[in-house]
Design a protein around this nucleic acid. Structure first.
Lengths: 363, 363
DNA sequence: CCGATCCATGTGACCGTTCACAATCCTGGC
DNA sequence: GCCAGGATTGTGAACGGTCACATGGATCGG
């Protein structure tokens, strides 16, 4: 017998308290000596209940340990008070932070948050996840930064309320759904312009995958980068990179490192930048001395890398909050809260970027 | 007017298809010319329905675009088929990966996954989150790696089914709930022993916060580290560190870097290790030449750090899967699936660790 | 002192499904 | 040809709330 893995699971179940059915409002009503409707009024803070009656009901509630069944409320009222966040990955910083923002705002509004992971790149996998999410009822929130998210979006029936946190839909067909985004496009342009301003002949780009199927449409980040190059009238190298993670960044970096003309690299996210940094280091090219690197997203650890990574800070949490607010307006327009503000992307300069050829004095 | 933030929200709501109430099984029954109960049988794959009838019902379902209401099912059947994952943070790698594992397993079992973030360290904040989770119905899955998770655990009524993914409860009161864990304790001991075996006089430890309130009980990781030191009969320095993130690691690292006797550092997670690496670098101490650093968790980017980080790989996804399976058994014992295996922690050696004083030849 | 109102409470129906049981049809054995 | 019994199908009553309306009493202006 070979190693099959290793789980320790201590089980010490509670002494099984009989599992009696939970108390309903009718039980409470009986104990309090009122009708079930009065109980309903009390738990809904309806004004016209005599204080004395209210107290009696509250006492009964406490005595029986009554908890209102969210399921029953949903069925009777016809509203589900839940959002399902569809995402392709909870592990990447941007996605996780967006999810956290949604949760914050949702809980404040009394909504529960469900998560559906689009872990399977096949159509049927996406379909299954979407179906599960739709069946759950309530609204959907799609994190559509990537291809899988965008594909899922197309599979959601139009009568299901749904909002999107996505890339800037810049230049493409307008989304069929309410959407929030921040201006990565402009941010990428600014970051690129910054590098050019420092004196770099041009800026290379390690791309995150496009969210459109054939990957023909560039992401807003790629577009912003290109725009800056064009505006400056400098050579426009081909973007590279095929993936989201450090490994993809590393592979792209290996190629870039071989070209001595490369002195500045913008990356589609910080994980990619990390891989690029690594590849440059292995090739013996110093950062920022030989090559400047700027990332995107400003994940918390980036500030502590060596060299610390210049990056474009994105307010994913705010984006998540705004996305929820948008969906909320869709679901009940009465709750006219204005979406919370999303911070504009901000270029955070650290050690990994600087003027070209700026080698430390000791060299 | 100053910058208040920046949101672009394009709203292009669908042409509002009348929002007619969704079809129910009674509607389907009418169209198919059968009773609602027959429809119920069809959607539940009950054997005794004539094939012809079944086809007719299926046709009606397709025609009306019928979708079974999960809410109504939950109410009528009394079972909620949902898990709520309570976690303090979705952004840290270990938590996010655990969540993802839960989701995988849950979706396979037809459960939906809810997320509750314990974002507020106050008792009332925790209480609110727990109450929201409990009210939602279904089981609870607490990610109890930290103090907040552990505190939440104590506030869940005993009649709510609940399982835990937590630290090895090693040496403390057994958990009141079914729990899964991996042997970080042993893994920490092995990592420490490895460093000692390399010739280091002792190993310092940058701790993750304890999950017990007064932080008096060491985490399994800390305990394993101490044990290895004791077994080897070497000096046992005080653990340092007060936090989970790179910043905390950096602060601890600054202190450690001042002490020339420090040649080996074990860190409670990779983020901490990243901060330590940074601090050592700033202090001019090379890694692994002057100091060896080993992290914990083996987050994906760690392999691409410079120097690449030795770390203890943890199977968080597997842990999440197993935790769900455990909860499932609690909720309906009939579904006797054995929990999926969890991979044992594994020490992954990379550049950041080595024998003491092993400076590159060029120096 | 009476009807109009408002306040406090109760009653019945319903949300969309499942469960328990009854009813009907059909088949086969004797 | 009759009856047991399985296969099919239907009916009524939950599940735990909300909603719309009805009821009874108190308040109040004229």
């Amino acid at each position: 017998m070979h190693v099959t893995g290793h789980t320790r699971a201590g089980a010490s179940a509670p002494p099984d308290t009989g599992q009696r059915r939970a108390a309903s409002i009718r039980d409470v009503a009986r104990v309090a000596g009122v009708s079930y409707q009065t109980v309903s009024r009390v738990i809904n803070d309806h004004p016209s209940v005599r204080p004395e009656t209210r107290d009696r009901v509250h006492a009964a509630i406490a005595e029986l340990g009554f908890r209102r069944s969210a399921t029953a409320v949903a069925l009777a009222s016809g509203q589900v008070r839940a959002v399902t966040v569809l995402t392709s990955n909870t592990t990447l910083y941007g996605y996780a932070a967006t999810l956290q923002g949604v949760e914050e705002e949702a809980r404040a509004a009394g909504f529960s948050v469900r998560v559906g992971v689009l872990d399977n790149d096949t159509d049927s996998g996406i379909d299954r996840a979407v179906a599960a999410a739709v069946d759950g009822g309530g609204g959907l929130l799609v994190i559509g930064y990537d291809r899988i998210g965008a594909a899922a979006l197309d599979r959601i029936p139009l009568d299901v309320p749904c909002a999107v946190a996505a890339e800037n839909p810049f230049g493409s067909r307008p989304p069929r759904r309410p959407a929030v985004w921040t201006d990565d496009h402009i941010a990428a342009r600014e970051a690129t312009a910054h590098l050019l301003g420092l004196g770099h002949a041009t800026v290379h780009y390690v791309a995150i995958p496009s969210s459109s199927p054939g990957s023909r449409r560039p992401t807003p980040r790629a577009a912003g980068w290109q725009e800056a190059l064009r505006d400056a009238g400098v050579p426009r190298p081909k973007p590279c990179g095929k993936g989201w993670d450090s490994r993809a960044g590393y592979e792209a970096g290996v190629k870039l490192a071989k070209d001595p003309a490369v002195t500045a690299v913008l990356c589609g996210n910080d994980d990619l930048a990390l891989g690029v940094l690594r590849a440059l280091h292995e090739a013996g090219r110093s950062v920022p001395g030989d090559v400047s690197v700027i990332g995107f997203d400003d994940a918390p650890p980036s500030a502590y890398l060596t060299p610390s990574l210049s990056s474009v800070r994105m307010d994913f949490t705010g984006l998540g909050r705004a996305a929820f607010a948008l969906l909320r307006q869709l679901v009940d327009p009465g709750s006219g809260e204005t979406p919370p503000p999303v911070a504009r992307p901000e270029l955070v300069l650290r050690e990994s970027s600087g003027p070209p050829g700026d080698r430390p004095s000791g060299n």
